[in-house]
Amino acid sequence: MAVSGQRRRPVVALYERIADAVHDGTYPPGSTLPSEPKLAAELGVSRPALREALLLLQEDGVLTVRRGVGRTVNDRPPRRGFEHVQPLEELIGGGSPLRVRALLRTVEEPTDFTTQHLLAPARAELRFWESVLTGEGTAAALSHEWAAPDELLDRTHPEFARALRAAETGGATESGPGAGEDRGTARASGPGPARGPSVSMLSVLVGASRETALSAHSGITATLLGRRRGEQLGRPADTPAVLVTQVVRVGETPVLAAKHMLPTGAPALPVLQSH
């Protein structure tokens, strides 16, 4: 299944709630979901909306209907496409990966988002990368990515720490007025223009993790671009968009957190991996 402007948002939200409940163990593999009336009452939704969400979950291989039993959770429900640890530029680019255009490579203090998802202490210094993903000359997504503090990465995933440092010695990046707005206090990573690679931080992490197991969890919400992001993507401020948040871990330790903004008309985002 892919999220697009054609999908009705209430059903998407309901689909996500049930999928989250499956993946967090509320409805573990092999379990049977409550009956439709009971589940609709528990979730506070209408039965027609619930039925459509359940049909989509069946279609995507999360649930199976068993005669005389009801809807059961498959033994190995597929994870969301963006929970497979794969760079966004490859995930939504299909056979032709999107191009990553670096806007900003810097170091900043934690925000509410990074404090929550990277468990960063208040005075920590976090690498922050801002990029626009483009395909066929059109801006398809705006990505904000943060790495955990260097000292934590040096202990938890030293290969990623080394790869990040090496990557940031790459070509010059582009930055513009207001590039650091709304993200707390930012510092340039060195004298002169910020420098960094035309790749995503997640791509660097995946490349450095051939011997390290990664896991990821993501969330998705509907929103509007707003003025600054609209300017960066060449769209009006009131353009509808999908906001994807992602946290990647090594074991139980978060090493990367990201926000990806995909405006209406961007390539479809896989929500569940089909068989």
Rank of each mutant, 00 (worst) to 15 (best):
R7E: 15
V12N: 05
E59P: 04
T223C: 11
L269C: 01
T72A: 00
S274P: 09
L262N: 08
G44I: 00
T169R: 15
A258R: 11
P121M: 04
S274E: 05
V3H: 09
V255G: 03
P48E: 01
L269M: 03
V255I: 12
T253M: 01
P78H: 07
W129C: 15
L202S: 11
A166G: 13
G5P: 07
A161R: 14
G30S: 06
V62M: 05
R17H: 14
R105E: 13
V255N: 02
E181F: 13
L205A: 12
R51I: 01
R66C: 02
A122L: 02
T72C: 06
V45K: 05
S31K: 00
E83T: 09
V248I: 13
R195H: 07
E16I: 06
A208R: 02
D20T: 12
R187A: 15
T72Q: 04
G30T: 00
R162Q: 03
A258P: 03
G226M: 11
A122S: 05
P28L: 04
S175E: 12
P77T: 11
S143Y: 05
E109L: 08
V11A: 12
E52C: 04
E211G: 01
G178P: 10
T221E: 13
H260G: 04
A216D: 07
L14A: 13
P48D: 00
S143K: 02
P149H: 09
L233E: 07
